[in-house]
Design a protein around this nucleic acid. Structure first.
Lengths: 193, 193
DNA sequence: AAAATATTCGAATAATTTGGTCGATTATTC
DNA sequence: GAATAATCGACCAAATTATTCGAATATTTT
């Protein structure tokens, strides 16, 4: 292979597909290697172990999500649409990612530390983005936000609340419909005017 | 439980869902029992083992498919629509069932004998149905079939050909589009009139 | 209610799977 | 052609998992 780093990416992609389908536990090194048309032991030349591959996959997925999100809010102008796009893309992504999570918290106690780390970092980023959208909206006289920090936190809390059913069982609730409900409240409030 | 046979059905249904998602190998007795909210060992009171559960599931799935198919051809009148309905429902079902098969032929040599048996029986039934549709069409002067047996076989061969990519990797080809292509040839032939 | 039967269960076990190691082998580069 | 990079198959120890078994609990029958 020309470039070692290039092949690592290939492994991350291939493994990512299998992980997303079967989760961490049910995915075997043998499967990954077979999918790569490669001896099982050869993978250990590129990664120290299964967990490290998974870590790289999750990190990669987080980056992809970040890109999609920034693209989503850049694709429209109005703060209203930015907010709508952001939450929709975010929730769609989490729907897809729920397999990974289901896999991790499968049954056993041992959460992977790095997932928490990535998640924490991601949460901070999200808060910043939300604040930016809110702030921008306020500047453009579209939103009327008393405190963008607290409002951003409120939005984030609502989104996290929507994640929960994703990780339990899928398809029980229509996420899209509930998202619209949340956005409605967010945009127009519950107080009659 | 009131009825033992009733509970066997419940096991078949629950296990079926898990099998269809993860395949035979990746599905564990523990998962099945947990999904049934039941001790793992209790399942052995209803089934001798994992393979037997799987066999019951596959048999069950075959029966469901049979029902769907007969319903599909009964729901319409014209032989043309009957044929179209039949092949579409059939292929949709196989798309869903491909997980089971992928699971079986996973890697290891040992195909389950009963799958072959069921399949053989199913193939004979299918041939009979196809012949019936063709024959009925000929009677109604919609089709012009020289030999309904050979034509039925030709249709079946084409359908089997479409199965292959399903069991390899999914989504590579658009089954629906190719189905339409096949039906076009079947209905109108390749000879310009 | 006692006996018989049906059902569930947890712990133990036996068989299989699987993540990972290692030395050898093959390809590539110097 | 030596040195290095990359691949591989055989092997192993640990973990997972299917299955067994005897005991416990529920249900039915007498």
């Amino acid at each position: 292979m020309v470039n070692k780093e290039e092949f690592r990416k290939k492994i991350i992609n291939t493994a990512g597909q299998i992980f997303s389908r079967y989760g961490f536990r049910k995915t075997t090194m043998d499967e990954i290697s077979k999918a790569l048309k490669m001896g099982k032991s050869s993978i250990y030349y590129y990664f120290p172990g299964k967990e490290e591959i998974f870590e790289a996959v999750v990190l990669n997925e987080a980056n992809i999500l970040r890109n999609e999100l920034t693209k989503a809010i850049k694709s429209v102008e109005s703060p209203l649409e930015k907010m709508r796009n952001y939450v929709f893309v975010r929730m769609k992504a989490f729907e897809k990612l729920s397999n990974y999570y289901n896999a991790i918290f499968d049954k056993n106690l041992d959460h992977f530390d790095f997932v928490e780390t990535i998640r924490a970092k991601y949460d901070r980023e999200e808060l910043a983005i939300l604040r930016l959208i809110l702030y921008d909206g306020a500047r453009k006289k579209v939103f009327s936000v008393a405190n963008s920090e607290y409002t951003a936190l409120a939005v984030q809390t609502a989104l996290k609340g929507l994640e929960v059913p994703l990780f339990w069982k899928k398809k029980d609730v229509d996420i899209e419909e509930r998202l619209n409900g949340i956005l409605d409240v967010l945009f127009y409030g519950i107080v009659r005017k």
